[in-house]
Amino acid sequence: MKNIVALFTGLVFSLGLSLSGMTNPDRVLGFLDIFGSWDPALAFVLGGAVMVTVVMFRFVLKRTTPLLDKGFYLPVTETIDVQLVAGAVMFGIGWGLYGYCPGPALAAISYLQPSNGLFVVSLVVGTLGARWWSARQHSANLLAVGQN
């Protein structure tokens, strides 16, 4: 059942991306171009989504468990650290260069455009690189703690 929910929510999410215009990188850059010929429409995508989640999440998270699992899988980190900010800066540069964030980039694989394919391969390599880097940082920290 959880698998069916995952498939269905992936599909609804993706229909939302398509309908809203997020799968077109030129429209995204037009929205980000606030000093040029700004296209403000896409502000309503995040705006519309957040209007729903702010209300719905309040009710959902009042429950002790989700409907189909034993508990919620929520992030535990609460500190605002260098990694959070540096990661957001890198993401922002990449997003501003091409116009793809991860969701629309993966959704648009279905169009089999070579440029999208190259972006997705780079996205995967970047993700794997970050996982590798984080694991190295983590073991280096453990080593440092051990030496103290």
Binding site: M1, K2, V5, A6, F8, T9, G10, V12, F13, L15, G16, L17, S18, L19, S20, G21, M22, F44, V45, L46, G47, G48, A49, V50, M51, V52, T53, M56, F57, V60, L61, R63, T65, P66, L67, L68, D69, G71, F72, Y73
Partner: peptide, 18 residues
């Protein structure tokens, strides 16, 4: 509307699967 669907999908995944 697209944004609404995105928010709905996120709400469902949290409500059902956590």
């Amino acid at each position: 509307l697209g944004g609404g669907l995105i928010g709905l999908a996120a709400s469902m995944l949290l409500l059902f699967n956590g």
